[in-house]
Design a protein around this nucleic acid. Structure first.
Length: 336
DNA sequence: ACATATGATTAAGA
DNA sequence: TCTTAATCATATGT
């Protein structure tokens, strides 16, 4: 209402009519006519609701109404545009573009299941490793991702629906109001743009949190520490055998590592990890490993004895060379 | 539930 | 680049 009264006041003698008309007695009549209409419009708020309603209707049907309305729109257009300037165009937000790209890359916002699972399968293949394990892990991963994706889509749909509903509502409201106050199509457009901006900022939050969820999911599944599996018994046995039979220098060469890896069904770097852990842990607490050391010393001794076909003799183990690491204190009867 | 074992990661150093 | 040492996060045993 504020705009309206201000505008009406500023109009003064009605800019809609050209100066040439002023002298014309007919135009004078028109002027009075319009002045009368404006008076009625300005007074409308002072009337009771019913009266105002009736008055509005009457004014709406007035023959001058369309002309007056378009003039008012024109004036309002000018004032509003001059007040707000021209800061219409908003650049595509780099932030939201980043989020969009990431969601697309993760297969959250992209095409349906087909593409996503294919990408996941490709990722699984690229990651390598034992097929049993990783396929299980990845199906789990895929399931969680699908969950995120589903939530994302349903939320997005909700937002979009709410946005269009709200936009419709506002547009209807404006259209309704445009019957009694000057509202130009441009204004409606601008309003719609504003609403869309607001809603897209909400959407951005959704995208942001979805991205976070995906990141967390990724870190959960990609961090190998989280899906730690112990090596099987036979593998640890092989590793321990090597370790304790090379106690003085438990640093397998690249080739040795490769062979151990093959024997144990693990990767070379896993062998390296194992030896790294084993060395440091053995060194840190030799006492704790004494029993194990003896056990493997016996084992290798027995093996050696078997291989050399000297089974008849009592075990006389070839105590492993003791260098940097103290040798286990082995007792012939196998006790500690 | 808790402690211990264990595979993986990381920073720092040689 | 490989190792050590510390640390993380899970697995396993009690």
């Amino acid at each position: 209402m504020d705009d309206q009264t201000r505008m009406l006041a500023s109009m003064g003698g009605l800019g809609g009519l050209s100066q040439a008309d002023v002298g014309d007695p007919d135009s004078v009549r028109k002027q009075q006519d319009i002045g009368d209409i404006l008076q009625q419009i300005m007074a409308i708020t002072d009337e009771s609701l019913d009266e105002a309603q009736a008055r509005k209707h009457a004014l709406n049907c007035h023959r001058m109404k369309p002309a007056l309305f378009s003039v008012l729109c024109e004036i309002k257009e000018k004032t509003v545009l001059s007040i707000r300037g021209v800061q219409e165009e908003d650049p595509p937000d780099p932030q939201i573009m980043r989020l969009d790209n990431m969601l697309l890359a993760e297969g959250v916002s992209g095409p349906e299941k087909g593409g996503g699972s294919a990408a996941a399968a490709a990722a699984a293949a690229a990651a390598g490793g034992s097929p049993n394990d990783s396929s299980i892990e990845h199906s789990d991963y895929r399931a969680k991702l699908a969950q995120i994706r589903q939530i994302y889509h349903s939320e997005l749909e909700k937002y979009e629906q709410a946005c269009s509903e709200f936009t419709n509502h506002v547009m209807n409201l404006l259209r309704e109001q445009s019957r009694t106050r000057p509202i130009s199509p441009k204004e409606i457009e601008r309003m719609v743009a504003i609403i869309h901006r607001k809603f897209s900022s909400i959407q951005m939050q959704l995208k942001q949190s979805t991205c976070e969820a995906v990141m967390i999911l990724r870190s959960r599944f990609l961090d190998a520490r989280r899906k730690r599996r112990n090596f099987n018994k036979q593998a640890t046995e092989v590793l321990n055998e090597y370790f304790y039979s090379h106690l003085s220098n438990p640093y397998p060469s690249e080739e040795a590592k490769e062979e151990l890896a093959k024997k144990c069904g693990i990767t070379v770097s896993q062998v390296s990890n194992w030896f790294g852990n084993k060395r440091i842990r053995y060194k840190k607490n030799i006492g704790k490993f004494q029993e194990e050391a003896n056990l493997y010393a016996v084992k290798t001794a027995v093996d050696a004895a078997n291989v050399s076909a000297q089974a008849s003799q009592a075990n006389s183990p070839a105590t492993p060379n003791s260098g940097g690491y103290p040798a286990p204190c082995y007792t012939p009867d196998g006790r500690l």
